[in-house]
Design a protein around this nucleic acid. Structure first.
Lengths: 237, 237
DNA sequence: AAGGATATTATTTTCGAAAATATGGCTTGG
DNA sequence: CCAAGCCATATTTTCGAAAATAATATCCTT
């Protein structure tokens, strides 16, 4: 059993104007992505009720939402568990991300306006500043995670399709869980800063083919890294 | 024990081994896709409770799941409503479907084995038989709907990615709602039988480019049709 | 009358108890 | 000793009441 208390346990009960269920969904999602709740781990109501201080109903709603996102696995009449990880799933997620993200970066480059350029540049800037501060274990730093997510989000934000952006966001979360999984075993992060910089420049200078190729390499090499350093976890399941 | 019950029969409270919530989710989904619950219509708990004979909790779980599928729109603290329709949304769904389905048919053609070919042929066969029986209003016929869905599902089933198949299925449902929306105003269905036949043959004879092109045309022309004949509904919202 | 605060009603959201279902151990017959 | 059925326990699933919140009506004050 994991005795360590998750980050989410010390937050205020809920954010303003939001339902408790939405808040719990968010906190559970973060815990699963960060592997505070391990892949395959059973999610028992008693335990979660204790941990989050909410009722069955509210938990059930959160678990239902996360099941739809592919982060939780529902076994009818036998409860929920954190979605298991597997080599196959990693391949599928990577594959789907490449398909969609490559298309979206092309569309964003075609349609992006001044605000888009500013968003791309400024989110990258913030990301680099955070990396300078603590270059060793970026995934451990919640701020880095947020900044990293926001940079990639900004890149495709001008694609014009809320539908595809929602799908992309889901796949990004699923991939991020795998990155966390391997983070503890990876000797040193590779040069992501350079890759991000190159992607930004390709995007801003409106080179769709180059940007697409860089994004694909970025996604695939990250996944390869995960597959290498989390191999023991992927084969165990 | 687990006998399969025909839809026409009085439904048991729930299917064997499934939760009531899963059953209600399914029934609500069908109602929304078939526009028995109109786009934008508020989904009040009292009304739904009456209609389905279940409790708040169960309904809430179903609505949460459908929100994630894009068929229901959640307004925090102000309840749920059937997801509105719009020209923009129709374009996005069509667009996303083309992107994904074209890729999946290519993969299926590359990877499909004998069982896949048999599934494609037999599902098309059933579809054609049903069309012969009642060629006028196919969408009105629940059997046609199921057979149509199963044929398109079979076509891509061998793609090898459960992840992308799940996304595809969601988009298919969202598109089907738009087809229903226009069905009442469309003078006569166009020659879908011929299109399906051509797609099947391109797939079975392993012509990925041709199959991809036919699928894209199939999806886009259906959407154009919807946009034309449901124009008044799309602009009203 | 108009504007704004307040009370009333409608509706959603959350809760914990109760029912339903699965799990694991125990017994019994072969 | 093994398998199959049965009981006790653990856990999930469902329910309707109660709390929280939004929407609407009412009543002051100017």
């Amino acid at each position: 059993m994991a005795e360590t208390m998750p980050d989410s346990a010390i937050r205020p009960r809920k954010e303003f104007g939001k339902t408790i269920a939405a808040d719990i969904t968010h906190r559970l999602r973060e815990d699963i992505i960060a592997c505070g709740l391990a892949p395959g781990e059973p999610l028992r109501f008693d335990v979660l009720r204790e941990r989050f201080g909410v009722s069955f109903t509210t938990l059930r709603e959160a678990l239902t939402a996360l099941t739809a996102e592919g982060l939780v696995d529902a076994q009818e009449q036998r409860g929920y568990r954190v979605a298991p990880v597997s080599r196959q799933d990693l391949v599928e997620v990577t594959d789907a991300r490449v398909l969609i993200e490559v298309e979206l970066i092309r569309r964003a480059i075609e349609r992006g306006d001044d605000d888009w350029e500013i968003a791309v540049i400024s989110t990258l800037h913030r990301l680099k500043r955070i990396e300078q501060r603590d270059p060793e274990h970026p995934l451990r730093d919640p701020e880095w995670k947020i900044a990293h997510r926001q940079f990639h989000q900004a890149l495709v934000s001008a694609c014009g399709s809320a539908t595809l952006l929602a799908i992309r966001a889901e796949l990004f979360d699923r991939a991020e869980r795998y990155r966390h999984l391997s983070a503890n075993f990876r000797p040193r992060p590779r040069d992501k800063a350079g890759e991000h910089q190159a992607i930004m420049q390709a995007a801003i200078s409106r080179k769709p083919d180059l940007a697409a190729q860089l994004i694909e390499t970025h996604i695939r090499s990250t996944a390869d890294n995960v597959a290498t350093y989390a191999a023991h976890l992927l084969d165990a399941e």
